[in-house]
Design a protein around this nucleic acid. Structure first.
Length: 687
RNA sequence: GGAGCCGUAGUUCAGCCAGGUUCAGAACGCUGGCCUGUCAAGCCAGAGGUCGCGGGUUCGAAUCCCGUCGGCUCCGCCA
């Protein structure tokens, strides 16, 4: 009998029908005479009753052998539960299935963790991701992601966008993040890189007359991972021809409304706009969380004549003094403030000045440096009420904004100043095109990327005062997190060249890196603009995560660990020599390192190479743990020995080389069974 | 590249600060037995650990020190 229903859909209306369910054994309750099974699939749970008196002895006998996570096909009748027997905790709780036939489709080892466990080791979850994904919470996240993707597709199709796939194998353009590199077998010594984003391809598509393009694009960056950053992430990437900023923003607002609606969240009919300068001035951040106040207050003018060294020196050096008024309700202790001070120092502040507002006046160690009338003026401007704590940073504007902006958000979360259930989506606009950069040959670099169109009223400053030039560039910000960044692009080859020159990329260099783009522009590229939206972050919010604490691993089916490993697949992993040969790649082998060490022993290289070799096998379940452990032990021991040798200046290099050679041979020997296993795992063709 | 936290039965954790007879424990899970209305089933019995790994200190190390591996978080980095 073919499956007739999913488990989670059965209701009273199905009572009396004969059904066939397939799924996993979520739990089993054996009463001896009768066995209850909770059968689980993507849609939910259904209780299966194996009662020899009702459904027959065969079903009961089969259920007797069944264990957690076994895969079953169950045939039986849907019945209404007897009065008082209903389970209000599950949607199918009014009915149950009297099993007449229980077929074991597959057995299962004992699960490494409980499917309905609350606290599960994140390592185990990644190692056994296929089991982790069976958990209802993860199934729900996958569903929400699917719904969001479909909503985005539907909306964009309705708006006349064309979904186009762009290549994964691209040319390296040394901009932005570190590339993931793919060696080219056919032309030895050459490489492709994987896209950091389809930026150049989508601009090219505009020149191709696509008019409106979108793609749910995988983007890859070889930079260190974070809770909200994986090596690969997905962007809703789109680009439009013949548009200006406002039309583009309206389109994206519609997109976000459609996507959020797919998760039952209503967004505002239009999103507020905040200039970059205003965001930095009021919130100290280019991605302000506007769900709560505690805005930055400038006190530079009030304090201009105050003889307090900390403030005076900062102002004299062209800096500013700003503060925030924290409604702490007396909950910030002296120790809390000390902790905030060290937090402030971590982000570049020299210190953190504070004033506690109490019923009978102000309290602080800095008050003795500040005249009474100035104290009054400060408190008045900041609106301090008894119980509040005023925090001040005096420094260059950049540091002041950074530190107070971070303090504001940190305290907003810790003191519960942020109301639940708010969805503040807003645009941050009018970014400067460039920012100062000491490492750039021209002293400036693009704030975002060098393809953004300057605002027309700023073009006149491009050559003379480039830092005064604003870009037609806008970030989409949600509850204090950046969702995406877009711009109207440059489509004029001369202007593009001019901008590249300004950031220190000369004519020939520009042609080398971006020649094809300049060529595209010179063959009739339309005015265009677009945006790339971080889909994983959006989905994590739709799943109920706080935007600034997003853990996108929860919404990615198969994520990597924070060191970029896949614990399920056991990668990255070494390649067999044959494959390296085909790709014309040389691998640093321990032997090579040791033999080149005849005159000068490079301790580090030798022991690091051993470590690399040992590490590459660790956590990979294809290899016998005992062999891996042996190899690691050996390497650890030898590394200790190498360190001892290196520290001992009396050892002569002949002895050392001999000993290194001996140790290296032993490591190679210990690694041998693992290498053989590796070759086998690549299949019969591998050797 | 830097900083911090964590690693003890299958799982979640206690024990560590102050080394030694509560030192290898609890709960859940698991195995076996009993049990026909549970849905956190119940009752009885049982199995299960290289205290991540290596080295050091010590008469003695889960406990202290060093190193190392792995996981997590943050800074740098990532438009």
């Amino acid at each position: 009998m073919r499956r007739t229903h999913h488990c989670g859909v059965l209701r009273l209306e199905h009572v009396g029908s004969r059904v066939c369910l397939c799924g996993w054994v979520h739990s089993r309750r054996d009463h001896g005479g009768v066995i209850f099974l909770d059968l689980r699939d993507r849609t939910g749970l259904a209780q299966v009753v194996c009662d020899p008196g009702k459904g027959g002895p065969e079903a009961h006998a089969a259920a007797d052998q069944v264990r957690a996570e076994y895969v079953l096909r169950v045939e039986g009748r849907v019945v209404e539960r007897a009065p008082g027997m209903a389970n209000p905790k599950i949607p199918t709780g009014d009915i149950e299935v009297i099993a007449e036939c229980v077929e074991v489709l597959n057995r299962s080892e004992h699960p490494p963790f409980e499917i309905d466990g609350e606290q599960i080791n994140p390592e185990a979850r990644l190692r056994y991701r296929y089991i982790d994904l069976r958990r209802p919470a993860m199934q729900r996240n996958l569903q929400i992601r699917h719904d969001a993707a479909q909503a985005a597709r539907k909306y964009l199709c309705e708006q006349g966008f064309l979904e186009v796939e762009t290549p994964l194998l691209l040319k390296a353009t040394p901009e932005g993040a570190r590339d993931f590199v793919v060696p080219c077998r056919a032309i030895p010594g050459t490489f492709y890189v994987l896209p950091q984003s389809p930026q150049l391809m989508k601009q090219t598509l505009m020149a191709s007359g696509c008019d409106r393009y979108f793609q749910l694009a995988k983007c890859l960056r070889d930079e260190d991972l974070r809770a909200d950053r994986q090596y690969e992430h997905t962007q809703i990437d789109l680009e439009m021809s013949f548009v200006e900023q406002d039309e583009l923003q309206e389109t994206i607002e519609g997109l976000m409304r459609a996507v959020f609606a797919s998760a039952g969240i209503d967004l505002a009919p239009s999103f507020p706009k905040l200039s970059y300068e205003e965001a930095m001035r009021r919130y100290g951040s280019d991605k302000p969380d506007t769900r709560f106040g505690v805005e930055l207050t400038d006190l530079s003018d009030v304090l201009a004549d105050v003889d307090f060294r900390v403030f005076k020196e900062a102002l004299a050096a062209g800096g500013q003094v700003k503060g925030i008024c924290v409604p702490a309700k007396g909950q910030l202790s002296r120790k809390n403030i000390d902790d905030l001070t060290s937090f402030a120092r971590d982000f570049g502040a020299k210190g953190l000045a504070w004033i506690v507002v109490e019923e009978d006046g102000l309290r602080s160690s800095i008050l003795k440096f500040i005249p009474e009338d100035v104290q009054q003026a400060m408190n008045e401007r900041m609106g301090g009420q008894p119980g509040d704590v005023l925090l001040f940073v005096a420094d260059q504007p950049k540091v002041v904004a950074e530190v107070l902006g971070r303090l504001r958000v940190k305290l907003g979360h810790e003191l519960g100043l942020i109301p639940d259930g708010l969805h503040h989506m807003l645009w941050v606009t009018d970014f400067p095109l460039f920012e100062p950069d000491a490492e750039s040959p021209t002293g400036i670099q693009p704030m975002h990327h060098p393809f953004s169109m300057p605002r027309p009223d700023c073009l006149q400053y491009l050559d003379t005062e480039p830092l005064k030039v604003y870009a037609q560039l806008y970030d989409l910000v949600y509850n204090g997190a950046e969702f995406g960044s877009g711009s109207i692009r440059i489509h004029d080859p001369d202007l593009q060249m001019q901008v590249l020159n300004l950031i220190g990329i000369g004519h020939s260099e520009a042609y080398k890196r971006f020649g094809f783009l300049l060529e595209v522009f010179s063959h009739g590229a339309p005015p265009h603009g677009g945006i790339g939206l971080g889909f994983d972050r959006i989905v994590s919010v739709l799943c109920g995560q706080e935007a600034s604490e997003a853990d996108i691993r929860e919404v990615i089916a198969f994520p990597k660990t924070s060191t970029g490993r896949d614990l399920m697949l056991g990668c990255p992993s070494p390649l067999p020599q044959e494959q390296l040969d085909q790709l014309s790649l040389l691998s640093v082998a321990p032997v090579a390192a040791a033999s080149s060490a005849s005159a000068q022993v490079d301790w580090e290289v030798v022991s690091r190479t051993w470590s690399l070799q040992a590490r590459s096998f660790q956590g990979d379940h294809r290899f016998a743990e005992r062999d891996v452990a042996m190899l690691c032990d050996l390497v650890n021991r030898f590394k200790s020995r190498v360190n001892a040798l290196a520290a001992d200046s009396s050892t002569d290099w002949m002895t050392v080389t001999a000993e290194l050679q001996r140790m290296d041979e032993e490591v190679t020997r210990a690694a041998d069974p693992l290498c053989r296993q590796l070759l086998r795992s690549f299949g019969p063709d591998a050797d």
